[in-house]
Design a protein around this nucleic acid. Structure first.
Length: 343
DNA sequence: TTGTGTTTTATTGCCTCC
DNA sequence: GGAGGCAATAAAACACAA
């Protein structure tokens, strides 16, 4: 830079142009407009725009200390820091965003600013940094939330599909059960007084039924495994969402007389997209979690006492309420447990 | 040129810490 | 009690569209 001239910025945000100002000895001193802060010290140098006297916004630190320079108590105007000053301040801020007194003094001396200005700049810079950080955190959390919601929606769909399968299989099983609920009815017929041909046919039919029942049982086992996988915290998905999904999609009641399983129907139902949950008494080996024999698998509780009933529950916070109230989707994480089963 | 929105500089009041 | 930090705010400087 040539002597007697200073470069300063006329606009902020790095988008301003650079101006070259005359700043010879005559430009500084009496008659020049300066800005003053408390105590009569200037905040920044400036040109006398009103009287056409050119003066640098910033002179050397030594000039800044000349008493004559600050004599005038004219209305202060804010002046922006030069890019060079901002650059140095930014570098200093990157090193340490807090300002010790020694560093403040040193920076003020280097930049030709009041220590107070340096302190203010750091204060405002910290505020900007905090705002940026908050914005970044918000974006990150929002992205995470969106991903979780997508995952949740997918799980809901999956849950609906699995429940449809359970309904279908349950109906098939009911069709194949005898009036007493056993699969052995047809087989027993072979030991009755039927004619040999009829008995043979009955046995054959019973065998087919038995094979069919075994097939159904295998499918149910697969469903169970699938459901358990989905409820397991180690399944790769969100354990919270998995449990929540199980809660949302729960449903079922065991009829105490025939141990049959229904979907939404009797008991207390709440049928909207999220909760077609059916609450009701459980027969045949269903126990409360407080009872002996209840297994637990980190948020996925199951009961294997009764071979006729495969049962598991998803726990919110490990609480022990088996009657899930699903009046509102926002009530799901109240620690209640839901269950469903088939036989 | 003017109105409007944004950014930067600075102030004020409150709080915490030593 | 003084120093320093922070939040809220004012106000000047600036950008930009109409």
């Amino acid at each position: 830079m040539e002597p007697g001239r200073l470069i300063f910025n006329t606009s902020g945000s790095g988008a301003g142009q650079m101006l070259f100002m005359d700043c010879g000895p005559g430009a500084v001193g009496a008659g020049a407009t300066s800005m003053f802060h408390r105590g009569g010290m200037p905040l920044l140098g400036g040109m006398d725009e009103g009287r056409g006297v050119k003066r640098p916004f910033f002179t050397s630190p030594d000039d800044m200390l000349e008493e004559e320079y600050y004599d005038e108590q004219l209305p202060e105007k804010k002046r922006r820091l030069t890019p060079e000053q901002v650059h140095l301040l930014e570098r200093s801020f990157e090193e340490e965003n807090k300002l010790e007194p020694e560093r403040k003094t040193e920076l003020a001396r280097k930049l030709g600013l009041q220590p107070r200005q340096v302190a203010v700049w750091f204060q405002n810079r910290r505020a900007r940094w905090k705002t940026k950080t908050l914005e970044r955190d918000f974006d990150r959390l929002k992205a995470s939330f969106d991903a979780l919601r997508a995952d949740h929606d997918a799980l809901l769909q999956d849950n609906h599909r699995l429940r449809s399968q359970v309904v279908t299989l349950t109906e098939k099983m009911q069709d194949k059960e005898g009036p007493d609920g056993s699969f052995g009815a047809a087989v027993d017929a072979s030991q009755s007084e039927l004619p040999a041909a009829e008995a043979k046919a009955a046995v054959s039919g019973a065998a087919e039924e038995q094979a069919g029942a075994e097939s159904l049982e295998m499918q149910q086992q697969q469903l169970h495994v699938k459901a358990e996988e989905r409820l397991s915290p180690g399944s790769g998905g969100s354990a919270v969402l998995d449990a929540r999904d199980a809660l949302l999609g729960c449903g079922g009641v065991v009829d105490s007389s025939v141990e049959s399983y229904y979907f939404p129907g009797g008991g207390g139902t709440c049928a909207d997209e999220y909760h077609d949950c059916v609450m009701g008494p459980v027969a045949g080996g269903i126990q409360s979690e407080e009872d002996e024999g209840a297994g637990s698998d980190e948020g996925c509780s199951y009961y294997a006492d009764d071979p006729a009933a495969v049962f598991f529950a998803a726990a919110g916070h490990g609480h022990n309420n088996h009657h899930h109230h699903a009046d509102d989707v926002d009530d799901q994480d109240d620690g209640q447990i839901s269950w469903w089963m088939w036989n």
